[in-house]
């Protein structure tokens, strides 16, 4: 059992890749915002990389253990401590019954920290996943963020291995100025946006709005040129189209405002999407600080984006770990 002493700002149970295959029912996949740190944490404690763990956002959470486990914390530095003693990120530790794991406030760049516990968080599987999907109030612990007093069941611990770490050269580096690989489409130029619009999109240093969360990342307002004068039958504004499905990670432009549709986002709607964040770059979104961080989009094609995914999958393997 994992007892929640404090849920902090927003702590949820997630698994990877979340609820895949339900887009046609209106359900985005959920899952961790930073799937790289999340999967690494699981790997460190001997879990399947996709096993259910915790996503701690913006800091401040505390957990107590009721039996012996192996834990790892990966992602943003929230000054994690076991029984008050500082521990390193990207490294597995043993905890005993009665021990506490505390995550404090953010220290340096990054915004989300991931806690993996050997055996995984054993909340019920809902529609194929344990991931918390707040818009539908399903998955995770009662479909919501964790609160003080919640008791999380844990799975059977298998080949848990404390005392391992991610090789220091392979630990991802965080920044406040991100470069995010993205692929054009489906309503980019030439028929919805102009070439100049897309050049601006791929060169501007966008600021992430403070009203950004798991459903969407809002970027700066921009006066687009638009290739069409109106949205025709779909509405007065050229950003309007007849409703269509939205890709996960799409940069959706509603009027003047681009919004990246993150893992809890809407599945379908009537606004254009000028680009889509490459699957292998989605993790970076999870570490951006709303209201402060800047991001530029770097254009890649489908083949280059597929290559990114393969590189990432290679990274998430035993070869990336070492004994301490």
């Amino acid at each position: 059992m994992l007892e929640v002493k404090s849920g902090g700002i927003e702590t949820t149970v997630q698994d990877y890749p979340g609820r895949v295959g339900l887009l046609d029912q209106g359900i985005f996949p959920a899952g961790p915002m930073d799937d790289l740190a999340f999967r690494m944490a699981n790997l460190l404690v001997g879990n399947d990389p996709g096993a259910a763990g915790l996503e701690v956002t913006a800091g401040g959470a505390e957990f107590a253990f009721t039996d012996n486990r192996v834990v790892a914390v990966c992602g943003a530095d929230m000054q994690p401590r076991i029984n008050g003693e500082p521990i390193e990120l990207w490294r597995s530790y043993e905890v005993k019954a009665g021990d506490t794991l505390t995550l404090g406030w953010l220290n340096g760049p990054g915004f989300r920290s991931y806690v993996a516990v050997s055996g995984g968080i054993d909340v019920p599987v809902v529609l194929g996943s344990r991931a918390t999907y707040a818009p539908g109030e399903i998955g995770g612990y009662e479909g919501r963020a964790l609160k003080e007093g919640d008791q999380l069941p844990l799975g059977n611990t298998g080949n848990a291995t404390p005392g391992r770490r991610v090789k220091p050269s392979l630990v991802p580096t965080y920044t406040s100025e991100w470069v995010v690989e993205a692929v054009r489409g489906p309503q980019a130029d030439p028929d919805y946006f102009t070439t100049e619009d897309m050049e601006f999109f791929f060169s501007h240093a966008w600021t992430l709005d403070r009203n950004s969360n798991r459903t969407g990342y809002r970027l700066d307002i921009h006066q687009w040129q638009w290739a069409r004068k109106t949205g025709g039958v779909a509405g007065g504004h050229p950003s309007n189209i007849l409703d269509n499905g939205y890709p996960v990670g799409a940069v959706n432009v509603a009027g003047d405002q681009p919004i990246i549709l993150t893992v809890d986002g809407p599945t379908l709607g009537g606004f254009v999407c000028c680009a889509v964040v490459a699957m292998g770059a989605m993790w970076k979104l999870g570490q951006m600080v709303p209201g402060w961080d800047k991001l530029r989009f770097k254009e890649v094609d489908i083949a280059q984006a597929a290559e990114l995914v393969q590189q990432m999958n290679q990274l998430i393997s035993e070869e990336s770990l070492e004994g301490v």
């Binding site: 913006a58 953010l106 209201g291």
Partner: peptide
């Protein structure tokens, strides 16, 4: 007088 500051532990408004 000894002056000291109170810092914010998290980003936001």
């Amino acid at each position: 007088a000894q002056e000291r500051t109170i810092k914010s532990p998290l980003p936001g408004v």
